[in-house]
Amino acid sequence: MTRSTFWRLVAGGIVFVALAIVCLTLAPGWFHPSLTDADLRGVGSAETRIGLQQAQAQLQNNVRGTVLQAIAGVLVVAGAAATWRQVHVNREGQLTERFTRAVDHVGSENRDVRIGGLYALERVARNSPADRDTIQFLLATFVRTHAPWAVGAPDGPEHPTPTVDESVSWLQVRAPDIQAALDILGRVPCSKNRPRLYLSRVDLRSLQLHNARLVDTQLRHANLARAWLRGVRMDSSDLKGTDLRRANLEGAVFRNANLGGVQFAGARVRGVDFREADLTGADLGGADVCGADFRGANLTGTAFAGAFADGATRWPDGFDTGRLTRPAGEKPHAR
């Protein structure tokens, strides 16, 4: 407590005590004034006059009792408010301490300590909505820093790679701290005005997410080859140039997303919601698009050669299904 706050509380207490004394002194006379000689002049019996004076005094005492009860009630409410305020201050202090400790752990050289720090940040985000945007920013920064895919850099990787490396381990084995950070990003509730998550140019090959929520996320030129993203929501996200070859996207949602130039070759996009998405120049060659919904999507230049569709696949008005031609007898990849 600061010195100025202390003196404000002291001043407030003095004012309250003064008002309480004034009310106890004056209120009884305001509501039930004492009987004067003029009021009692018409009363002949001395005994009766005494009885009236005693009754009037009792009424005044009742008023004093009511005022005391009101003062006690105010004190109880003030005490409860002070207690609540102190609890709130203590809680904020504990959250700040937990947040600081978790950030320290996330910056550790020890991977196990980093993972513990990441899950500690998730607990803080669940208990403190005001910190969610900051924590999501920290998690996205952690992923970009620890799993870069430096497309365009002089010594950066070729993107997309000539082939999908089937020998790459699942991300939870290869980089469990990155997997944990993305699991948390997909679970933490989004605030209404959350800034767009920035996860462009990251190496997330063989990532595994299920029913995660990565709405309004920028994932440009990321490598998500062989990723398992069933039921993931990426509405309004920007995945321009992202590598999703051989990925399992069954039941995912990409409504209003930018998927221009995305590599879907060999991916399983069964039941994916692509409504109003922009797939200009995307490559869905050999992909399983059974039950996918492309209504309203921009399929200008989208490659569908060899893609496998069925009667449940929904196309934009006027779409030429001849673009799905595949060699006779060829079947889609089982995923």
Rank of each mutant, 00 (worst) to 15 (best):
A125R: 01
H32E: 06
D133I: 10
E92K: 15
V22A: 10
L24F: 05
I50Q: 13
V67L: 05
D37T: 04
F16M: 04
T83S: 14
A334Y: 10
E122M: 09
T141W: 01
R144P: 04
D37F: 04
L207Y: 01
K192D: 10
G93M: 07
P160W: 00
S128N: 11
S167A: 12
T300L: 07
C190S: 14
N256Y: 12
G79S: 10
E330Y: 05
R91L: 11
L52P: 02
T217Q: 00
L68M: 10
D39T: 03
P176E: 05
A72H: 03
D203F: 13
H146D: 08
Y119S: 09
V143M: 02
R226Y: 03
F274I: 07
D131L: 11
G79W: 01
F304L: 04
D203G: 06
G73Y: 11
G241F: 04
S34C: 04
A102I: 05
G260Y: 01
P316M: 04
P327Y: 08
E97G: 13
D317M: 11
W84A: 15
D112L: 11
R85P: 05
H221W: 12
G241K: 12
G301T: 00
G79I: 06
L229V: 04
R49Q: 11
Q54G: 08
V215M: 05
A38D: 10
V173I: 12
D317A: 14
G260A: 08
D165Q: 07
R275N: 03
Q218H: 13
L249M: 07
E276L: 15
A175D: 15
L214W: 08
G79H: 08
D243L: 13
T48Y: 07
H210R: 07
P176K: 08
G12L: 08
R255S: 04
A38K: 06
G281S: 06
V262Y: 03
G93V: 05
L35T: 02
G306Q: 01
I135N: 02
I14H: 00
N256P: 10
E158W: 03
L229S: 03
D155V: 06
K192I: 14
L224Y: 04
G12Q: 08
G152W: 01
L249R: 01
R295S: 06
T280S: 12
L244A: 07
T2S: 11
F308W: 11
L118Y: 00
G286P: 02
H221G: 04
D39I: 01
R230C: 05
S45R: 11
Q69V: 15
S169I: 03
R144F: 01
G12N: 06
L185V: 02
L35G: 02
N258V: 12
H159G: 15
R98P: 03
E276K: 15
D238W: 15
R41E: 14
L229G: 00
V151R: 00
R226P: 13
V215K: 11
S45T: 03
M234V: 07
A150Q: 15
N248Y: 15
A267V: 04
A303Q: 12
D131M: 10
L197H: 01
N127D: 13
L118M: 02
G44Y: 10
Q136L: 12
T321A: 07
Q208T: 14
E47K: 10
T300N: 13
